[in-house]
Design a protein around this nucleic acid. Structure first.
Lengths: 249, 249
DNA sequence: AAATACTGGTTCAAATATTGAACCTCAAGG
DNA sequence: CCTTGAGGTTCAATATTTGAACCAGTATTT
């Protein structure tokens, strides 16, 4: 792996932590030499991607991504365009809705609208969604070209809960159903107690670039209701794509 | 410079462009070899920091920073905390207000609230603010430890308009006034037709970490009014710091 | 329609940056 | 006051990066 790749992986690692981390711990966690980790950190800090606490000498995610995100969103206002659809869907379904975007080989949550209900599903903003174990991931995978699906299912599928489909064949069945219906349903595949329905957001070329998902507590999630929610999510996802790509070539 | 630094500089360069760019152009602009630029781009793309248009093969800023920005803002909700103050100040002053944060050696705009007036100053979101030529930069510089001010003024000061103070001595005078008043005023130092007043946002340790600036068209900007606006900006900046650092150690 | 001048992308020996064990200093704990 | 682990640094050995030259393809120009 190139130096750049290693440094960006280190940045990823830091981003996943929710508290500051010291040099030695970071070197251990990243399996990099202490001297190497430090050189990377210094370089990342020079560019604002990492910040070192003056006092504790520990490191954390810096502010530079905020500026880059702003520029990205000015040119591709995906979140801004999708937000009203997400909100409307959250109100209509009465459940937490989250939007994810594919980037850097991963599907990451980029917007969340909480349900108004007291008993609701909490979604981490910035969380990375596994392709085979979440409704969003299945919705995304299902509409990918066959070759890419194969590659995604070639490596071992991690188990997140007792209900995770870790068998490639089982996942393929879920994907077939997803393509037929236009939306996916994941029953506690990622987290116990949560059932989700999700629809892909497709580029004009028909390629998925993200997903829109509704997450409900099992207590409120009978299948008839989830299917209805799935249809609504699919309609909203189409609406987002139309509006987002409407003003472009 | 390390490979990482070069790659991040390349990313910076891409971020400054407001349209996609081809490999050859990018290699020229960055003064990197084409092969090198390409390797960097591939690596940056693998991590989502850069995106290649499937069709045109041109490159652009990717979506990864959006996720990182989200995580950063979840832990350090600087923009979220400051936004109400920015909005209130924009209404009170009747002018465009922008918030900047120091990161990666630069002061970057991270939030803008436009004035309600038809004739108003437009601020680029994501723009980098030169220290010696903007009110925000002066407010930031003025409260830095002397040694760091010296370093900032040691290199040649770029001229942005006919009114830019490019002489270190002249800048030092502006900085002295800024410290005395608690806010800076820049008269068309960055852009002709714009007068700004800005106040630093200080950490509990007394170190500046950003600035709050009000930008008015010269037509509406007599000095008495700018001083009044400056005082209001200083008060708002203190309010932001208090609220932002209030809940921390 | 042939020639030219660009693209984006690739190759591989030469040049250079990266690596990491050992080292330093300092602070906290036993 | 000795040990441990912290952050940080050094420099010879080493692995990676570099870039001139090379494709193949596509607009432009002649």
């Amino acid at each position: 792996m190139s130096t750049i790749g290693k440094a960006l992986s280190l940045l990823d690692l830091i981003s996943e932590l929710d508290k500051d981390i010291g040099l030695s711990d970071l070197a251990r966690l990243s399996a990099l030499d202490k001297a190497t980790a430090r050189r990377f950190l210094v370089e990342l800090e020079r560019h604002g991607f990492v910040e070192q606490d003056e006092e504790t000498r520990r490191y954390r995610l810096g502010a530079a991504p905020v500026r880059l995100a702003r520029l990205r969103q000015a040119r591709f206002p995906f979140v801004a365009v999708a937000a009203p659809f997400v909100k409307a869907l959250a109100e209509e379904a009465g459940e937490t809705v989250h939007l994810s975007e594919f980037s850097g080989g991963r599907l990451s949550t980029i917007h969340v609208e909480d349900s108004a209900q007291a008993h609701r599903v909490i979604v981490d903003p910035g969380a990375v969604l596994p392709f085979h174990a979440t409704a969003s991931g299945l919705a995304y995978l299902a509409f990918l070209p066959p070759g890419e699906i194969d590659r995604a299912l070639a490596r071992p599928l991690e188990r997140f809960s007792a209900h995770t489909a870790t068998d490639a064949g089982a996942v393929r069945t879920l994907l077939r159903e997803t393509v037929e219906r236009g939306y996916s349903i994941s029953q506690q595949g990622f987290e116990i107690g949560v059932i989700s329905a999700a629809a892909p957001i497709l580029t004009p070329g028909g390629r998925p670039m993200g997903a829109l998902a509704v997450a409900a507590p099992t207590a409120r999630a009978d299948m008839a209701r989830m299917h209805e929610i799935g249809r609504k999510a699919a309609a909203a996802a189409r609406g987002i794509a139309e509006k987002y790509y409407g003003g472009r070539t």
